[in-house]
Design a protein around this nucleic acid. Structure first.
Lengths: 347, 347
DNA sequence: TTGTAGGCGTTATCAC
DNA sequence: GTGATAACGCCTACAA
């Protein structure tokens, strides 16, 4: 029952040539070195025997595994599946496969998964987990590994990257809210050890200034993670701080991402505040299913394309592209749904 | 900058032993064959040099890649990420990694991804894509590959599997609806070329009979895929058929899964019917985020555990377990949310 | 155009 | 307990 594996020798034997010749005939890149009829004979023999090249042996010899390591925080965060699909689809088109590892934003776990992949001699990495001082990034840089950053930038190392223009995105959000008439706009900032969290916070502050609005520490809270519970906690903090004389401290919240925005809802409800009547909420990412969840206004970007572009960048370098490192910034777009409205007249 | 790779020979040289001895010392399983002090010396040398074994070479020699191929329909279906995480977490604990492939329920694509993985000599497969007459399943069986089915069963081949007890699940749904007083209960059946779709349909029919309710072809529609649009289409069909004298043809719908249930909502809304006042809806799977989407009553099962159990089954066989093939059926549970209510008095 | 030979890094099987 | 040797399946100078 268990099939005996067909090797190159078997194909060679059956077609009456040396294994080396068979190898050349089978490899499209070297097929030209072989006479047409020999090539045809070898190909026929291979097909007849059901030959399937042993990638492991090939990898050992060529030092190419045609495998890419992908590190993401957590696959169950709906933001990542479309990105991963983009990656895999583009990679598969070139015969590459992806090894996915979840890090749960835990350094030790990240290190462990990274090692697991290095041991498998992946040809490159896609990292969606980069934090400011990241051991994996440092090791990858030192070892000269091929890396493409996704959704993250590194100031320390110069890696190619694909991300959304966070500054522009958060500006879209803030100027939209300001245009509605909001003057007390709060921000639930993402983790400041990620470029994403930092860029959006700084963008927020600049956008406020540009809109002629005052920045106040009371209007900014810091989430420890891009997680629903943190959005909830931060919004409570926000509301608790200044929920004084004339209503809540803010009339609008720009959340660091959609997960945080979901947390905002719960806290607002708990405080007896309605959205958008009392407080407007805008998210970031337009993650899948968020539109069916609540009518959340948010900043959208093409998730799937982030994946395909990252794969593209990687494949180009794998193909020997030596051009200077490129960083792609995909354009975000404002998506208005039902979570935003002008502030109450009395506000 | 690019580090020169440290090999076993380097470690052997530095510790003054033969590579074979170094190999024995480094491998916990064969370490006992070596004197303690030699082992210590080798280990120290390895650490000092930053030796990292070449898994590719090891795989070629041992014919074990410590890699598992995972085929799923589509990672962006929220049902799968937690399952995949369960798989990866359990596999990683034993030093295995997973290759994920999306098939989009397309046979050619499935075949292609399957080949990509076979070529990489994965040690086993987890298949969540099995359909009734499945080429991949047949090839895997013929080649004697290690396979564990997830969320699917095969009548044709005897593979170990992990799935939810669909029959019991749909019975829970139907008896709950019947208990609420519903007598005209419809079913949006999933694709009948999947065991999941079939088992739930048959379970539905039996459950109806057990509840003393009449089965009618008009109350059953067939979705071509577990997709929102198909749920929408089928529900329209349902409503269009018998939306005659006294209201809609049914007062409750048991959907084949949550995605189909989401589609039901849209069709009901369009028809001016409210849920649950006019028509109750119950789903299946309790997929992530569904609880935040709409208050959908549904049948829950432990997604993550499906993954860990599947990995466990695979690892056991990889470890040489020869016990007869096991099929795990995880117990489903009824989750009541706001999409179900007694039928209208006038119904 | 084809054959020869050697080696990628590791481990299994001998022998000592 | 350790060393020597060969082989896993493939590719690629080099030679013919």
């Amino acid at each position: 029952m268990a099939e005996l594996p067909v090797t190159l020798r078997d194909v060679a034997r059956r077609s009456g040539v040396h294994p080396a010749t068979a190898s050349r005939a089978l490899n499209p890149a070297t097929r030209m070195l072989v006479s047409e009829e020999t090539a045809a004979r070898v190909l026929a023999a291979a097909a007849a025997l059901g030959y399937r090249p042993n990638t492991v042996a090939r990898s050992l010899r060529t030092r190419r595994s045609h495998t890419i390591g992908v590190l993401i925080p957590d696959l169950t965060n709906p933001l990542f599946p479309p990105i991963v699909r983009g990656l895999e689809d583009r990679l598969a088109a070139d015969g590459y496969v992806a090894l996915i590892g979840n890090t749960d934003a835990d350094d030790d776990r990240e290190q462990m998964v990274f090692e697991l992949m290095r041991a498998r001699h992946v040809d490159g990495f896609v990292l969606a987990t980069a934090t400011t001082h990241n051991r994996v990034l440092a090791e990858a840089a030192e070892a000269g590994l091929l890396v493409v950053l996704v959704n993250r930038l590194s100031e320390e190392f110069s890696f190619p990257s694909v991300s959304v223009d966070n500054d522009r995105g958060i500006r879209l959000a803030v100027s939209y809210l300001a245009g509605l008439g909001h003057r007390r706009i709060a921000h639930v900032a993402g983790p400041q050890d990620t470029s994403t969290g930092r860029d959006r916070l700084h963008g927020f502050e600049r956008a406020l200034a540009d809109a002629g609005l005052a920045a106040s520490p009371a209007l900014i809270t810091h989430a420890a993670a891009f997680a629903i519970e943190e959005g909830y906690r931060c919004t409570r903090e926000l509301l608790g701080a200044g929920n004084g004389a004339d209503g809540p401290v803010c009339t609008a919240i720009a959340a660091g991402n959609d997960m945080l925005a979901i947390g905002c809802y719960t806290a607002l409800e708990e405080a007896g505040l309605r959205c958008p009547e009392d407080v407007s909420v805008i998210g970031f990412n337009d993650m899948p299913f968020i539109d069916r969840l609540r009518p959340l206004s948010t900043i959208a970007f093409p998730h799937y394309q982030v994946g395909t572009e990252a794969a593209q960048l990687l494949l180009e370098r794998l193909a020997g592209d030596e051009r200077p490192v490129r960083s792609l910034h995909l354009a975000p777009e404002l998506v208005v749904r039902g979570s935003t409205a002008p502030p109450r007249p009395g506000g």
